[in-house]
Computed example of a mutant assay.
Amino acid sequence: MLKKIAYALPSVCAAGFVLAVTTFSAAAYDGQTCVAPGNCWEPKPGFPAKIAGSKYDPKHNPKELAKQSESITAMEERNAKRVAAFKKTGKFVYEVEKIAD
Rank of each mutant, 00 (worst) to 15 (best):
M1A: 12
K3Q: 11
K4T: 03
K4C: 00
K4W: 03
I5Y: 08
A6M: 12
A6K: 14
A6Q: 14
Y7F: 10
Y7H: 01
A8Y: 00
A8V: 02
L9Y: 08
P10G: 02
A15Y: 10
G16W: 02
F17S: 08
V18R: 03
V18I: 15
L19P: 07
L19E: 02
A20E: 05
V21A: 02
T23Y: 11
T23S: 15
T23R: 11
F24E: 10
F24R: 09
S25K: 13
S25L: 14
A26N: 06
A27F: 11
Y29V: 09
Y29N: 14
G31C: 06
Q32G: 07
T33P: 02
T33R: 11
T33W: 01
T33D: 11
C34W: 03
C34F: 10
V35A: 09
A36N: 10
P37N: 05
N39V: 15
N39P: 07
C40I: 09
C40P: 06
W41S: 06
P43R: 10
K44V: 13
K44Q: 09
K44R: 11
P45L: 03
G46E: 06
F47R: 12
P48H: 12
A49R: 08
I51V: 14
I51G: 00
A52T: 13
A52W: 01
G53A: 05
K55A: 04
Y56A: 10
D57I: 11
D57M: 12
P58L: 07
K59F: 05
H60G: 02
H60D: 04
N61C: 13
P62I: 06
P62S: 13
P62R: 10
L65Y: 08
A66G: 01
A66T: 11
K67H: 10
K67C: 01
E70S: 10
S71Q: 15
I72W: 01
T73K: 13
T73H: 04
T73C: 05
A74N: 12
M75E: 09
E76T: 14
E76D: 13
R78P: 00
N79H: 13
N79Q: 12
N79A: 07
A80L: 01
A80N: 10
A80K: 15
R82N: 00
R82L: 07
V83H: 07
V83Q: 08
A84M: 08
A84E: 06
A85G: 08
A85H: 07
K87G: 10
K87N: 03
K88I: 04
K88G: 04
G90R: 13
F92G: 05
V93L: 04
Y94K: 13
Y94R: 14
V96T: 14
E97S: 09
I99M: 07
I99D: 02
I99H: 00
I99W: 00
D101I: 13
